[in-house]
Computed example of a mutant assay.
Amino acid sequence: MTNKQIIIAAIKARPGIRTPELAEETSIDNPRTYIAGEIDRGEILVEPISSELGGRPINTYRINPDNPPDETLNPRQRVVKARAGAQTTEAGFSAALSSRGDLHISDGRKTVQLTPAQTADLIAYLDRINVDQVMKAAGVA
C-alpha cells in the first residue's frame, strides 16, 4: 500500500481521527501532504477542533460519504472543452485524454472512445501531417 492508501484506510477506520493520531498510527510524518488532493476535491473532510492543551486547533479527518476518494488511486480523467475561441458549429464538443492513454471525443451526439494503443496511433498520424495546411485547404483556417 502507498502512504496515501494507508492514510485513507486509517481515516476510514476511525472517522474523526486527529492529525497527531493519524501520524502516530500510520508512522507517516505530516500525513496531510499525502491527501491534499483528496481534501481539495472534498473527498476527505477536515474539521479543526480546539486542542486539549490549548493553543492552535488540531484537524480531524473523515471520509465524505457523498464523494469518497478513489481507493484504487486510478488517475482521474479530466474533460476539457475545445480550445477557447475555436470556430465550431456544433455545440458541446469535448475531448478528454486520461493519464492511462484513453481518449474520449464527443460532439454532443456521438462519442468516440479510443484505447491507449489507438490513441498512440492517432497521435502518431496527426504528428505526420500538417494540420494547419490541411485545414486551410479545406477553407476552415
Rank of each mutant, 00 (worst) to 15 (best):
Gly16Asp: 06
Gln133Ser: 13
Glu38Val: 02
Pro57Met: 05
Lys4Ser: 11
Ala82Glu: 10
Ile8Asn: 00
Asp29Trp: 13
Ser99Ile: 03
Pro75Leu: 12
Pro31Asp: 03
Ile63Gln: 01
Ala137Ile: 07
Asp107Arg: 02
Gln133Pro: 02
Glu47Lys: 13
Val46Pro: 00
Gln118Phe: 06
Gly55Leu: 05
Gly54Ala: 10
Lys136Phe: 07
Ala23Cys: 05
Glu47His: 11
Glu43Cys: 04
Arg32Tyr: 07
Thr115Val: 03
Thr2Arg: 09
Leu53Asn: 15
Asp132Leu: 08
Gly42Thr: 06
Asn67Trp: 07
Arg83Ala: 07
Ile49Trp: 13
Leu53Gln: 15
Ala141Trp: 06
Tyr34Val: 02
Ile63His: 01
His104Trp: 12
Ile11Glu: 00
Asn130Tyr: 09
Gly37His: 05
Pro57Glu: 11
Ser99Lys: 13
Pro31His: 00
Arg18Glu: 09
Ala84Gln: 13
Pro31Cys: 04
Arg56Cys: 08
Glu43Lys: 01
Glu25Leu: 12
Pro68Thr: 04
Arg56Met: 14
Ser106Asp: 12
Thr115Ile: 04
Pro68Met: 01
Ser98Thr: 15
Val80Thr: 15
Ile11Gln: 01
Leu103Gln: 00
Asp102Gly: 01
Gln5Val: 05
Ala141Asp: 11
Val80Glu: 11
Lys81Val: 10
Ile58Tyr: 02
Glu47Asp: 14
Asp132Met: 07
Pro75Gly: 14
Met135Glu: 09
Ala9Asp: 09
Leu53Lys: 15
Ile17Gln: 01
Thr2Asp: 13
Val140His: 09
Val112Ile: 14
Glu38Thr: 03
Asp132Ile: 04
Arg14Asn: 14
Thr119Arg: 03
Glu90Phe: 10
Ser106Ile: 04
Gly108Asp: 07
Ile28Pro: 01
Asp127Trp: 03
Val134Arg: 08
Pro75Asp: 15
Gly108Arg: 09
Arg41Cys: 09
Ala9Phe: 02
Thr19Asn: 03
Glu52Trp: 08
Asp70Ile: 07
Lys4Thr: 06
Asp40Met: 12
Ile129Gln: 08
Arg62Ile: 04
Gln118Tyr: 03
Ala91Lys: 09
Ala10Ser: 10
Pro48Ile: 08
Ile35Cys: 02
Ala91Phe: 09
Val131Gln: 12
Pro31Val: 00
Ile49Pro: 03
Leu97Glu: 05
Pro31Thr: 02
Ser50Asn: 13
Arg18Tyr: 03
Thr60Arg: 01
Asn67Leu: 11
Pro20Trp: 01
Asn59Cys: 11
Ala10Val: 07
Leu114Thr: 05
Gln77Ala: 14
Asp107Glu: 10
Asn67Phe: 12
Gly42Phe: 08
Arg100Ala: 15
Ala96Tyr: 00
Asn67Ile: 06
Gly55His: 02
Ile11Asn: 00
Asp107Lys: 02
